[in-house]
Design a protein around this nucleic acid. Structure first.
Lengths: 216, 216
DNA sequence: TAGATTGTTAATCGATTAACAATC
DNA sequence: TAGATTGTTAATCGATTAACAATC
């Protein structure tokens, strides 16, 4: 077992960004890149980039930089995204946002596939042109266990979130990408990413108005 | 002009969460709440909650707690969300994700209204049942200026992001909620919130697999 | 008053950055 | 070799938390 490297959520997030920047460089036919150039593309300081890479190992050539292809592979491997197979996820809550995300192709591009959708009103949703198997939420536990799913995308209304999360945890889900505007209570072993669209807008709005006050 | 209070993005984000928790308490008919109870609902430490509130002023009663309604109003005011009028935003990029977000009702609930959608392929999209005025991107600059829009939701493909952002900035946009998997280069005066759905999933996936390694 | 809880300070913790020796 | 750039340490910065005096 490897020694705990103590890598933070934020650092892993940045490593995803670096990997995307490297894809771009590969497309551009670049062979080498310096930490300064890659950091600029990713919008970070070069020392931060080098430190982030150090979590996974040493990949550079002093005086030269990094081999684009090699560094890309190293980060993909470090992140555990082998790309061999799509990782299965489920989506819960087929309201406006949930159905929207089903159409989003970005998940597949990054190696994830939505295997099924669950909703309390599955029957009424039959004819919404949903391209993914649609079930009632009561079938969720069995599906998750049988298909060894460990990630869920949660798009239910805030009021419903607590109950659904309890079910997901009971079924053995390990990670939740949460779009419900609710604070989830989960065991420490379950990882949650909160995507709070309205709060993000509110955040922008606050800093815009602050700026205005300073300008006047 | 008020003294710069040095409030961080993260603290403002948490204040949005507190305000939502307080709405719940109002619905429940609660009159008073302690920092401990509210912090628990928001998933933070009570000392952090009290410190966050201190950015906006003093609202509590020692020995008693906070008046739910009063604290709610204070935070709404501090955040500048007067609720009188919906704040206008535009959405750029009417692909799968963009059209999806148009259906999302959460923005309106938090006080934002999408006034128009822009896309390079506006003509081909006419019949997709889009409920919001739809224009070609070339009309964006004029629309933004005439309607004094200062926020945009960006959902264009990564390749198109840089050019669109330059146009948005030129038009006077102050804040961008960015769903494009691209690192945006903007002047310091423009605020960006990055929502990177694929990287969020990748992040979850990494920590789930780490956990597995430890368990074995 | 005694008990409870705030507002705020000081201590801690973690993340970022500058700097530079190592080395290609 | 001289120039460039990495990998890593040490310094800095900022955010979180514990603790407690103030006070209802």
């Amino acid at each position: 077992m490897a020694d705990k490297p103590e890598i933070s959520r934020k650092a892993v997030y940045r490593l995803s960004i670096y990997s995307r920047c490297l894809e771009q460089l590969i497309d551009d036919g670049r062979e080498l890149v310096s930490s300064t150039a890659l950091a600029a593309a990713a919008g970070v300081k070069s020392s931060q980039l080098r430190r982030d890479l150090a979590y996974f190992g040493q990949f550079g050539m002093r005086g030269k930089g990094y081999q684009v292809e090699g560094l890309y592979q190293a980060i993909r491997e470090g992140l555990g995204s082998d790309r061999e197979s799509l990782k299965p996820v489920i989506l819960v809550g087929a309201g406006n946002l949930g159905r929207a995300l089903l159409c989003y192709d970005g998940f597949r591009k990054e190696g994830f596939e939505v295997k099924a959708v669950f909703d309390v009103a599955a029957d009424e949703l039959r004819d919404h042109g949903i391209q993914v198997p649609l079930f009632h939420e009561r079938e969720m536990l069995e599906f998750v266990r049988e298909n060894k799913i460990n990630m869920a995308i949660l798009c239910v209304p805030a009021e419903a979130a607590a109950e659904v999360v309890a079910d997901l945890v009971a079924a053995g889900i390990q990670g939740i990408l949460n779009f419900s505007p609710a604070v989830l209570k989960v065991p420490k072993s379950v990882v949650v990413s909160q995507v709070d669209l309205a709060s993000e807008l509110e955040n922008l709005s606050y800093f815009i108005s602050q700026k205005k006050i300073f300008e006047e």
